[in-house]
Simulated scan of single mutants.
Amino acid sequence: MKFLNSILDVLSKHNLVLSLAKSDFKKRFVGSYFGIFWMFVQPIVTVLIYYFVFQVGFKAAPPVNMPYVLWLIPGIVPWFFFNEALGAATNSLYDYNYLVKKVVFKVSILPMVKIVSCIFVHAIFIYILFGVYLLYGEMPSIYWLQCIYYSFCTFALVVGLSFITSSINVFFKDMSQIVNIALQFGMWLAPIMWHYSMMPEKFLWLIKLNPVYYIVEGYRDSFITHVGFWNRPLLTLYFWVITGIIFLVGLKLFKRLKPHFADVL
């Protein structure tokens, strides 16, 4: 019951979260001549690098009959969101330390503020993803709308993880560096640049243990194979059980450490 009350309490502050997220989003570009343009430079350059290395250089062929870039983008777009959101949310308590020290402020919404701010950028990338597929002559499909569901999956997973990493980061400042290194490894551990069929069958279950696998393959199901998430019931159940456990552990850890945040910050 306490767990449910905590979730409802956070959800009741959705207007405040949205307001702070908009402010955070705008604050990133204060004093920048090109503004929001810089938000997309690195991801787009990353996609171009992988395109030239794997398709032009190594002549890599995706497991489906389509250009490599159409196979790559649905996998890498959710990763950009996951990567940026977790990194930003981990440092959220430091970035908003002046709010942490306010007695009446709901500190638990701060990681969500950073994540919602990242959703604005992710939404634009979704539009770019639609545009790329249309430019290549792909016909729109109702399955494309599944990206909304898988974006929510990413949001839920990041919120749970950020409760853990942001609370620990207050007392152990190296946590943000550990998260950055883990994300660098995570990009290659998840089947983003490569297909899971390249793994030996006996090790395939290890790849599927990674909840990001569900999200990446879900995006590809939406744009490439047109498979509904309801057609993967066991994988869907596993993802939400793991995400729920992470969320529960993260929320409890956050609540236990919260009384000491103001003293340390």
Results as ranks from 00 to 15, higher is better:
I76S: 05
A156M: 13
I126P: 10
F81Q: 03
V113L: 11
A88V: 02
S92D: 00
S117Q: 12
V107I: 13
G137R: 10
V100N: 07
M139R: 15
I115F: 06
V104K: 15
A89L: 01
M175F: 06
I164E: 01
C147T: 10
N83V: 02
Y136V: 05
K102N: 12
L157W: 07
L161Q: 03
K114M: 05
F172Q: 02
L70T: 06
F171C: 01
P78L: 02
W144D: 00
C147Y: 13
V179Y: 12
A88D: 06
S108F: 06
Y136R: 10
T165P: 01
Y127E: 04
P74N: 08
C153G: 02
E84H: 10
W144K: 03
M112T: 09
G137V: 00
H122F: 09
I128G: 14
W144T: 00
H122A: 05
V159L: 04
I168E: 03
I168F: 06
V116E: 06
M112Y: 09
E138M: 14
H122P: 10
Y127V: 07
Y96M: 09
G87L: 01
F81C: 02
Y94G: 14
T165H: 00
M139S: 14
V170K: 00
S166H: 06
F81P: 07
F130H: 13
Y98L: 13
F125E: 08
C118N: 15
H122M: 04
G137S: 10
L110W: 08
I76E: 01
M139A: 15
N91I: 13
L129P: 07
V132W: 07
N91C: 09
D95Q: 14
K114N: 05
F82I: 09
Y136G: 09
C147E: 03
I119H: 09
L135A: 15
N91F: 10
Y133L: 03
P111L: 01
N91L: 15
V100G: 04
S117C: 14
Y150M: 02
F172A: 04
F152C: 14
F81W: 10
L99H: 09
K106M: 08
F171R: 08
I164T: 04
I109Q: 02
P140M: 11
